[in-house]
C-alpha cells in the first residue's frame, strides 16, 4: 500500500497499480453503488437494487460495508406514507471512487503496453 499523498500517476514508475487497490471499493457491486451515487448525487435504495439486480439483504450488506468505511451516508425518510432510504456519496467516497477508476485505467494501460511489446 502506498502513502495517501501518492496518486496512481505518481506510482506509474514504481509500484504496480494493483498493489494500491482498496478491497472495500474494488468489488463489482460496491464499485457500482459508488458510481451510481456519484452520478446521481443522491440515490434511492430501490433504484440501486433494480440497477444492480440485488436482493434487499445483499444490497444492505454492501451499503453497510461502505457506510462503515465512511464512503457513503445513508438517510432514511418518507415520501408520503412510504419509507424511503437515500444514499449519498461522502467526500471520502468520491475520492475513493476517483482513485479506483484511475488505478483501473492505469492497470489497463500497463496491460496494453505489455501486450504491445
Amino acid at each position: 500500500m502506498t502513502g495517501p499523498a501518492d496518486t496512481p500517476a505518481d506510482e506509474n514508475e514504481s509500484a504496480h497499480p494493483v498493489t494500491g487497490l482498496d478491497d472495500v471499493v474494488h468489488q463489482r457491486v460496491r464499485l457500482g453503488i459508488l458510481t451510481i451515487a456519484h452520478e446521481a448525487r443522491r440515490v434511492e435504495f430501490g433504484y440501486l437494487r433494480t440497477q444492480l439486480e440485488l436482493t434487499a439483504g445483499n444490497l444492505s450488506q454492501h451499503l453497510s460495508v461502505l457506510e462503515t468505511a465512511g464512503l457513503v451516508e445513508i438517510e432514511k425518510g418518507y415520501a408520503g406514507r412510504r419509507g424511503r432510504t437515500w444514499i449519498t456519496l461522502t467526500a471520502a467516497g468520491n475520492a475513493a471512487l476517483a482513485e479506483e477508476i484511475a488505478r483501473l485505467k492505469l492497470l489497463i494501460t500497463r496491460v496494453e503496453t505489455a501486450n504491445g511489446q
Binding site: L31, I36, L104
Partner: peptide, 15 residues
C-alpha cells in the same frame, strides 16, 4: 478491469 470500467460507464449512463 476493462469490464469493471465498462460496467461503471454503463451504470453512469443509465443514471
Amino acid at each position: 478491469p476493462r469490464r469493471l470500467l465498462a460496467d461503471a460507464r454503463d451504470l453512469a449512463r443509465r443514471v
